[in-house]
Nucleic acid binder design. Structure first.
Lengths: 246, 246
DNA sequence: ACAAAAGTGTTGTACGTACACCCATGA
DNA sequence: TCATGGGTGTACGTACAACACTTTTGT
């Protein structure tokens, strides 16, 4: 960059938004569902519409810090996983020229909004209203990434507490993928992956007690390639498609 | 975004850069290698160092258009594939605050630089000098993405001409993955993928003639999820059955 | 005892890998 | 004819989907 002439910063503004996923159990069906918090806009563009939490990037603030701040301000909680999703910068997506660096994050199941949270609410990811700006599109993409990534990484653990049963974990997968998985096969796959540490604790209360497992922190939650080399050296696969000029 | 107070555009500037991959046959070993064009910086930050082609984002220019312009200005050619890589925005990566939206692109084999190209040169991707800014890091990440993506998409075709033999295609994979593949197994895998159309043309000239194939354009070069919904309607995300690497 | 979830066993299919082997051409 | 890359056949191992089956609890 900065190879050409030097007329920078037109009226271009940089924002940071975050798609925050968590899980909530539907009281009627008893099944887990992917939910996300949205904030109601209280000012000009798209006032009254629900939108992703976010804000302008501070000139002295790292991108991921800005995303975390977003999260703290809306949910009062720290994400268990945070990853850059995409930079959305289409000309027509907002009045003026706004480039939004969008992150996506996971919260452990059962996260509660702070009681003083006004204009913030949880929505079922598969049943969203029309959102502000291109945020429906952004959520669609984030969901696609989530569903993809759950297939080749262990991010599902980012939605669970420290101790969980294999059924808990399977339910997370089923909620994300929106289809049932075979309990027997699921057990074997996850047991052979070497990422779970069995404990001697069991969840009792109904039927046969289920052994509780703990996540093996020696293995990263998700491979990220050479990004943030201070966290992940190098190994497996990520994902992210787009644009074909062929 | 834009949910908070409204003090936008600090001194933040937005740049667009592109990592452009192509292939070149090493004259001595006869093997294909991944190469990319770099430009020598002629002004202040990191003057004299090699850097990724790029420039400031124009306020009226779409992100991918800016990336394509970059490509045209440096190589004079149109990319066969273009995809956003990542938004790099660390505070210390450049004097002032610069957020770089980085794309990566593919050029068909044998692309030539325009004869008037000064301060532009091709480099072997696995043998780069110290580049300006964090560009070594960026290229590492782009290479990682390329190697990953070649495993689950057909982007390798973006590096080949219209007609190619199976050996040509295999050589592309071998160059990207930096390891030899079994010709017999490679043939079957790619034949069973349904993405190649055999022609009645053969490449003659040495030994047994090799049948030439054409890329089946009914199949996308790479899965792209819900991005650019004008191209990908609402149906066709990726593959990904059960698989749990948790 | 019964229902239901926890957990084990077994089998068939699909697919990748390794490698032996035949085919067609230029020199 | 021989060398070489093009192309086919086959056998083995792993991974996974399907599903029958056993175990352990609460009621």
């Amino acid at each position: 960059m900065m190879t050409r002439t030097d007329p920078p910063s037109d009226g271009i503004r940089v924002a940071v938004s975050t798609v925050i996923f968590s899980l909530r159990r539907d009281p009627t069906t008893g099944r887990l569902a992917v939910v996300l918090p949205l904030v109601r806009r209280t000012r000009d563009p798209h006032e009254g519409r629900w939108a992703l939490p976010g804000g302008w990037l501070d000139g002295a603030e790292e991108l991921d810090v800005a995303a975390s701040r977003t999260l703290a301000e809306t949910t009062g909680l720290a994400p268990s996983y945070l990853e850059q999703l995409y930079a959305f910068g289409d000309i027509g997506r907002s009045p003026g020229r706004v480039v939004s660096i969008v992150y996506w994050a996971l919260l452990r199941e059962g996260a509660q909004l702070p009681i003083d949270a006004h204009n913030v609410a949880w929505f079922d990811a598969s049943d969203l209203p029309t959102l502000a700006f291109d945020h429906n599109h952004i959520v669609d993409y984030a969901l696609w990434r989530l569903r993809n990534k759950v297939g080749y990484s262990r991010i599902a653990h980012g939605l669970l507490p420290d101790l969980f049963s294999l059924s808990d974990l399977r339910e997370v997968y089923e909620a994300i993928l929106e289809r049932d998985l075979d309990p027997a096969n699921f057990r074997r796959q996850v047991e052979n992956s070497g990422t779970l540490i069995p404990t001697e604790q069991f969840r009792t209360g109904s039927h046969r007690p289920a052994r509780l497992y703990r996540y093996n922190h020696d293995v990263e939650l998700a491979e990220r390639g050479p990004l943030r080399s201070d966290i992940t050296p190098a190994t497996a696969p990520p994902v992210l498609p787009e644009k074909v000029t062929t």
